[in-house]
Design a protein around this nucleic acid. Structure first.
Lengths: 182, 182
DNA sequence: AACCTAAAGTTCGATGCTAAAGACTACATA
DNA sequence: TATGTAGTCTTTAGCATCGAACTTTAGGTT
């Protein structure tokens, strides 16, 4: 009586109870929300990871593709901007782009108007991969929210946006780097 | 007109609009929720990372401390169980424990009743660190949810639990490894 | 008793990340 | 024109992680 399956994680409720045993002045409401958010995200990333793997790419690749597509046509960005957008160091971006170039997902060119700049451009293959990933992702996401009534979805979206506004305002973009993400 | 600050991220609303431009049959409600969840988690991890750094540890350390404390007195677990609990490979767990032993947060002993087993035990210094981290974390968490009325908190907790139940049931613990977490 | 199999943890090689140092370009100023 | 300075990317060294091979022990089977 206790664990979910093997030895993975205890139930959320069990976990909150354990926290309360070890830390008296704890607000169970708050802890429930925070821990649920954290677990949900983990599971979502696992699911996304399976889907991207199915397409022969990684979640890391997908993040880059997303940033490029969202930048709009002609789907070009500098490595520095990409790094900021994804919360990586420029060094990591260099290597990630290296890999994605060999995979044919993006091109790397020098900016001829300013030869110290580099332009990363989405290839049509990259755009196609993004599209496939997007199709899989939306199916999963719709399935995830299946049990939520339309008005519940609206409310949830509104509440989460409010939380986000609070935390994004409190950390005005961390000066760039967004590291230490477990 | 558009970006938040420097070049970090667009507004959530802007991002959803961009998605709709590039991908027609998209449910904006769903996408709003999913993207808000993802961003929220990112910001939370950054915040936790700052707090743990302030205490001279890392988020990685903190995860181990949490697992040990939640296991209850006498705060002992095997590396394998810890690895499963945290979604790491046993190899990674070995190195993490190495580091935490030198930091005085845990002890490593052999189980004398079964000499192939190892026991990781929380030290009192480790317990104290967990307590300090917990105090900082709860302050942040309370601040994060400040704008939510009591009944909103209850509803949010309930809805998130429902989502979690759905996704945890769908992925009955991934057979162990929970990798590919960006 | 000798052997086989399974389980637990560590070691090894490769990958991706960070922080810091380096190389190159553009632009302002003297 | 020469020089300083800031900005952009790459390179380097160190660390954490993964997957796979390896070591040791426990427990069952013949």
């Amino acid at each position: 009586m206790g664990d979910t399956s093997g030895l993975g994680e205890p139930t959320l409720e069990e976990q909150i109870a354990a926290y309360q045993r070890e830390f008296q002045d704890l607000d169970p409401q708050v802890e429930k929300i925070v821990n649920a958010l954290s677990r949900l995200n983990r599971r979502m990333n696992v699911a996304y990871g399976r889907q991207t793997a199915e397409l022969g790419i990684t979640n890391a690749d997908w993040e880059v593709l997303k940033a490029l597509v969202l930048s709009g046509a002609p789907y070009r960005m500098g490595p520095g901007d990409l790094a900021k957008r994804l919360g990586l160091t420029p060094a990591a971006m260099t290597h990630r782009i290296d890999r994605m170039v060999t995979e044919g997902l993006v091109n790397r060119e020098r900016d001829e108007t300013n030869r110290v700049r580099v332009i990363v451009e989405l290839t049509s293959a990259g755009r196609e991969k993004w599209l496939e990933a997007m199709r899989l992702a939306t199916v999963f996401e719709e399935d995830l929210l299946q049990d939520l009534a339309p008005d519940e979805r609206v409310t949830l979206g509104e509440v989460l946006t409010r939380l986000l506004r609070r935390v994004e305002h409190a950390q005005p973009d961390a000066g760039g780097r967004l590291s230490d993400l477990d």
